[in-house]
Design a binder for these strands. Structure first.
Lengths: 366, 366
DNA sequence: CGCTTACCGGTAAGCGCTTACTGCACCCTA
DNA sequence: TAGGGTGCAGTAAGCGCTTACCGGTAAGCG
């Protein structure tokens, strides 16, 4: 049946049309399920498509109807050498991307990804090129300055993750305030700890700033004493967490009764450093994380942390972007609820306390 | 300077041209660095581009010069619940993709990714749609039947990973034979083990078939006795490895002195199952893996395995695809060298034996 | 000083597809 | 039987870009 004709010049709908004995318009209509072609016409077209194993060209399609059905996703890839367990941070991003993909697939979109190394140059140019190939962009944390975003947003809708909305771009993030509040309250009210510390993340991360601020506000509100200052500056990595503890201890400072960490990676490093000094968790110092990465439950002790709906975050980001692409609207700032996961590093006995709370979404409209 | 003109209708090179007072051809030439525009012309164009923050449309470009500068990548994503540590298999794929990206970036290509769940339907249609949006496709292991590949290859160049070349597609893989041979020789010759077993991977995986066959050949050649049969069928997962051991033991079979596993995941499950029965590794049974995933070195005992150059594999796959796209050539079957990583699960004492070998690439041309 | 040569820049023709518009049959109604 | 619908299919115009081709200007040469 199938011709042995090995087509090498690109196959177009003209080829399909002539083989089926119809016009290109009909081919297009059949392929897109538009209009109401006669059954026979439809059949002839499908037959020809099958015989030629024709696949319509995406670029031509995109050009013609102004929709590429592609979202660009930009994120950071580690490059430096990794602390043990650090690999997890990759996963983290991948889970979000997976969520984006899920959302995208529902609309027939695909993901055009581009990762950026910590010391890549001409990042803005790369992202711009990506923008040209996509209908919209989703930028992971700290990929582009506000100015850079503004410039690009003229051409393409942009959604940022865990950042903050700009006049030109939308943002999706998790409810950091609620997470920190839940953690602080659990430590202060449920456990009665009176002194708290917060090992922060990268100083330039919006997420970190929010968490840091929420920590101070909530701790004070709960009536606890807090330790702060540059000595508490981490960088989201396990190594960073470990070195904060090490330098604090080396400086002879007394640790607070409980330490909140900017993320689970940091907590991992903190617990490690503490163990090396013979300080017990949670008996001497209680520790909490943020993120609930997969290994969190396997640490010793299992880590009390905040679970963020990563995959949902990705999916939501796509949805927002999509609504911006198709309608032009889109909520400027979307906040997703997080959940307190109580394990043992806070001082709770195994399985004793099954606290679990969910934040209300601020305003979750269409 | 910048006009407050909030362009909403798509910006085109016509806009840039009129603002710069030149023709669209000049704009295009400047943007692509072709021809030899006068310095002044170039400057005016660049200025206009900057002021408008213009980004050329990828689809139009692609349509016009027949090159999208996009590679489609299709792979499997786990969906089932995971055994502890199983997450690693994600990483595995991501490392390869990362490699593809590195290669792609060198040529200004981006990655259009699409993951397929184990029970997604209309996979072929999805892949076809992807093909329409890309200049070529890279398919991870077992994504499409040979027929499906043949059909698509009519329209787009295809490179498969860890598969086997078909008349229509190219393939890139690691040197499984060498890896297995190195493992078998190390176990038989260096350690003197006389009986070997091989816990296989998914039956339909070309990689697995190759490894399995190599195992039998090499073991026999080395003069060892081998255990085979359906009882040794695993599926690349830790759970699969564990259940092979469990059923073997439950059936009262005596285990061989050394067991090779189809991959590290499997080895992880095997070691776990052995530990549960109180069988010591490597004193009672030596175990080896394949892949050298990051956790391999952290197992107890650290896993002797074969390291595959994952990232290179990805990069190579892209290069092959690229040469096919641009020139039409491309080596049908590319084999990358692997390396024996000796740790302790084979019976070597910590750091005692620093064996390390590298296979020669069969024929590594341009 | 006039003509050739070189060099830029502009005009216009597509790339493969979608879709508005138009044309043609055929069927229904009066 | 004639007029008006109705419904399908075809023609052609464009989507935003690249580039072959051509024309004009200025420099070089005899």
């Amino acid at each position: 049946m199938a011709e042995p004709k090995k087509t090498r010049a690109t196959l177009t709908i003209y080829d399909v049309a002539s083989r089926a004995g119809v016009s290109i318009a009909s081919v297009s209509r059949v392929l897109n399920g538009l209009g109401s072609p006669r059954a026979e016409t439809r059949e002839r077209v499908m037959q020809a498509v099958r015989e030629l194993s024709f696949v319509p060209d995406g670029a031509a399609r995109a050009l013609s109807n102004g929709l590429k059905e592609v979202v660009g996703v930009v994120f950071r890839r580690g490059g430096e050498e990794l602390f043990e367990g650090e690999d997890e941070s990759f996963l983290f991003i991948d889970v979000i991307n997976r969520g984006i993909e899920v959302g995208a697939r529902r609309r027939g979109f695909d993901l055009l990804i581009s990762s950026v190394g910590f010391n890549d140059d001409n990042v803005a140019a790369r992202i711009a090129a990506l923008a040209g190939k996509a209908d919209g962009l989703i930028l992971h944390d700290r990929m582009l300055s506000a100015v850079g975003i503004a410039r690009l947003a003229d051409m393409v809708p942009i959604v940022t993750l865990a950042g903050s909305p700009t006049p030109a771009s939308l943002n999706v993030r998790c409810d950091n305030e609620f997470g920190i509040r839940a953690l602080v309250r659990h430590l202060v009210i449920d456990h009665g700890y009176r002194s708290l510390g917060y090992v922060s993340g990268r100083a330039d991360s919006p997420d970190n700033r929010t968490r840091s601020r929420a920590f101070e506000t909530e701790a004070v509100a709960a009536g606890a004493e807090i330790e702060t200052g540059p000595a508490w500056q981490g960088n989201y990595s396990a190594a960073g967490g470990a070195s904060v503890v090490a330098s604090l201890l080396d400086a002879g400072r007394k640790l607070p009764r409980a330490i909140l960490c900017a993320n689970d990676q940091t907590a991992l490093g903190v617990i490690h450093a503490l163990a090396q000094r013979g300080i017990r968790v949670p008996q001497d110092v209680a520790i909490t994380g943020f993120d609930d990465v997969p290994v969190a439950r396997h640490l010793h002790p299992p880590l009390t942390t905040i679970r963020q709906p990563m995959q949902e975050l990705g999916a939501k980001a796509f949805d927002i972007l999509y609504s911006r692409i198709s309608a032009g609207g889109g909520k400027a700032d979307t906040v997703l609820p997080v959940e307190l996961i109580v394990r043992e590093s806070c001082g709770c006995a195994q399985g004793s306390m099954q606290a679990s709370a969910t934040a209300l979404v601020a305003t979750d409209g269409m």
